[in-house]
């Protein structure tokens, strides 16, 4: 075979060099930077945005995700897209020195790599991971001390709630975070894994779907009947928070009278975004859930 003509060789060389350069750049992007702590942070995820505010780093945020709603200060920040549609152009225009994104946003990650913008990749998992994430982000942005204070405070509060409901009967509870309005179709409940399931545990109850190790379970009518939960807690959040008529919302359950929760009127409707944002407010969520399931048990605890 004849040797490659010089022009082809040059092109090949250029390709190899540029590939190597790209690899080197992406390694640099993923590496932990050792410079000054990030001062221009973009956070795309509601949970991490709340964490940053809680550790006193809210003033370093220059952009927030479309679904970030708390604390109110977040409304002053420019919005840079959501989980599925992050606006790379707007993110880069904000000249961030740290972007906090979700683990599945691989396209965005690749683009940030190319632009040499450092990022922190985050994922919703179980309850202890929330505190672990707070500590990790704190260490990353040079706010380890205040992050530790927030995380330790949360652990303390969660332990207090756990202790306050200890010894009380642990009701078999179904935590439902979605269904078709006005009917029991398409019921989405917490499975036996994730922070919602941990929330049930902290609040002194057994998850009725503990054996299904998924974050969410689509529960059929038969499953609702066969699991016989002692208590049913429905969550409303986001746009569904407006004007909820509790009696009307819960009346559909009367069609399944053999469920102990229905018979004993242990149906609860809790409204608020803190139940679905695994950030610092998860403590409030645990407190409200415990107060619903064990009325009066938390009276001795200091109010937040």
């Amino acid at each position: 075979m004849a040797a490659a003509p010089p022009r082809l060789k040059r092109i090949l060389q250029t390709l190899v060099v540029s590939t190597l350069a790209l690899v080197a750049m992406s390694l640099a992007g993923a590496a932990q930077p050792s410079g000054p702590p990030p001062a221009r942070i973009v956070s795309l995820i509601p949970a991490t945005t709340e964490m940053l505010f809680a550790m006193g780093a809210g003033n370093r945020l220059v952009g927030a995700g479309n679904y970030d709603r708390f604390p109110p200060e977040v409304d002053k920040l420019p919005r840079v897209g959501g989980l599925l549609d992050p606006d790379t152009e707007r993110i880069l225009a904000l000249r961030p020195d740290l972007v906090i994104l979700y683990a599945t946003q691989s396209d965005l990650r690749a683009r940030l790599d190319r632009a040499s913008v450092p990022y922190y990749s985050y994922e919703h998992r179980a309850m202890p991971d929330i505190m672990q994430t707070i500590r990790a982000i704190g260490a990353r942005i040079g706010a380890a001390e205040s992050a530790e204070r927030v995380a330790a405070g949360m652990e303390q509060s969660l332990a207090d709630i756990r202790r306050a409901v200890a010894g009380r009967p642990r009701l078999k509870t179904m935590l439902i975070f979605g269904r078709e309005p006005g009917t029991l179709r398409g019921v989405l409940a917490s499975g036996g894994y994730g922070f919602l399931s941990d929330l049930l545990d902290v609040a002194g109850s057994e998850n009725a779907f503990a054996d299904i190790k998924q974050q969410s379970v689509q529960a059929s009518t038969e499953m609702l009947l066969a699991r016989r939960p002692d208590a049913i807690v429905e969550l409303r959040y986001g746009d569904d928070r407006r004007a909820v008529n509790i009696d009307q919302e819960l009346s559909v359950w009367k069609t399944l009278p053999s469920i102990p929760a229905v018979r004993n009127h242990r149906l609860y409707l809790l409204v608020g975004d803190e139940f679905v944002v695994p950030g610092p407010r998860i403590v409030n969520a645990a407190r409200r859930l415990a107060e619903a399931l064990h009325p009066g048990a938390l009276a001795s605890l200091p109010r937040p």
């Binding site: 679904y67 179709r185 398409g186 689509q218 059929s220 746009d239």
Partner: peptide, 21 residues
């Protein structure tokens, strides 16, 4: 749509015979 709504949409489009009545 909001995020959890998207999940409900996908489930609806898959077809669901559990009509509960």
């Amino acid at each position: 749509a909001d995020f959890t709504d998207t999940l409900r949409m996908v489930r609806w489009l898959m077809g669901m015979l559990d009509i509960g009545g």
